[in-house]
Design a binder for these strands. Structure first.
Lengths: 205, 205
DNA sequence: CGAAACCGATGACAGATGTCACTGCTGGGA
DNA sequence: TCCCAGCAGTGACATCTGTCATCGGTTTCG
């Protein structure tokens, strides 16, 4: 009753994008109608080709990552289902993705056949989250950090001294120290640097 | 006068590995004779199938990365040319790779067609290094860090306090501080944490 | 041999950092 | 309404860190 599923593929790695496109083309009911190498390009392509499903790499150059694209697509093309494919499956990414309306979240370790199956499932209105990533996300739990704590920790992530962080956050150095101290305590880390690492691992940053 | 080029493909991401294998199979003179999802598996496969060219992902699970595989292959299968494919092209990786006898170093942003061309070139005895990565490596230059400085910086990379680092390095805390201080100065960083970041970026860690 | 570089360590010092207590202010929620 | 959590700040204190000078030992190179 309907034509093939129209797929948008976004991945900055040409080798992978092209190769996946080739493999998916073996499936009669899937058609890759557009490809993109960055988040911005993905949005432009989506507007132009109006795909049924957008398969997005999580990390792409240019600041606009897969989740951002998904969030934008939800308003621009509400009928387009989105899914994320990624190499590094941090729990927090999964949460962000689901919050952005993403319906599929899979690691790149899956085979192309499985990917095709999942694309069909997502297109049909289903959801799919890699079981292992889901387990990680559940065990990681919710972030205990308040908004400001996370914000300040983010600004301190590059290892800059507190003075710099305070200036960038437009806060008093003392306040910054307090936030970093409480964040460090909540993550039971030795100092803010390990706190950053832990928060990153948990996907809370 | 000779058969197709026998290729070993090693990448932990099944999606990519399978897809690249499929694309390379379009080339009449290339044949993917073995695939591996880890460094150890790659070595086993290489021993069993004796490929002409090994295409290795830089980062693979299990401690044995692409460069380690290449180094091992040089003694086990001296006739097998090796090349590295990677997503993150840090200058230092390139150096390590070349030192390990790798003859090709390309980012995953290349197309499959180009990869095929490069495989042929490497098999014919040529070398190929991505121009952009080469430029980065040259501009990054050699590491100014001494062996101990790099070692201590590595141990301090997780943000652990100096006492821990000293214990793990079996050094006096004072000595650790001195090494970290000189390393920080050489990298003109604010503190050891940013020094770690800079060294990582340059591939000196 | 002498010089230079690296390794390992100590001591001293200033400044950065982590921790705690305490003060206001604000916006919910019971 | 009161109470609590979060936000923003100050002050004080102990500790950690970064920096410097200095020492003795070793390798290596000219």
């Amino acid at each position: 009753m309907s034509g093939p599923i129209r797929v948008l593929l976004a991945d900055d790695e040409h080798l992978i994008r092209g190769a996946v496109a080739a493999l998916l083309s073996y499936e009669d009911d899937l058609r890759v109608v557009a490809q993109a190498a960055s988040g911005a390009e993905a949005l432009a392509m989506a507007r132009a080709h109006r795909p049924d499903v957008a398969v997005l790499d999580l990390q792409m150059p240019g600041g606009v990552d897969g989740v951002a694209v998904a969030a934008e697509l939800r308003t621009v093309l509400p009928d387009c289902r989105t899914m994320i494919v990624t190499s590094h499956g941090r729990p927090g990414h999964l949460k962000r993705a689901l919050a952005a309306g993403v319906r599929g979240f899979v690691p790149k370790t899956v085979s192309a056949q499985r990917l095709a199956v999942i694309i069909r499932s997502v297109h049909a209105g289903g959801r799919y989250v890699d079981p292992e990533l889901a387990a990680d996300a559940i065990s990681a739990g919710d972030s205990p950090l308040t908004a400001r704590e996370a914000e300040v920790l983010e600004l301190a992530a590059d290892g800059a001294p507190i003075g710099d962080v305070a200036r960038r956050a437009s806060l008093s150095p003392g306040t910054v120290r307090n936030y970093l101290s409480s964040a460090t305590a909540k993550l039971s880390a030795d100092n803010r640097h390990t706190a950053v690492r832990i928060a990153r691992e948990r996907g809370w940053l």
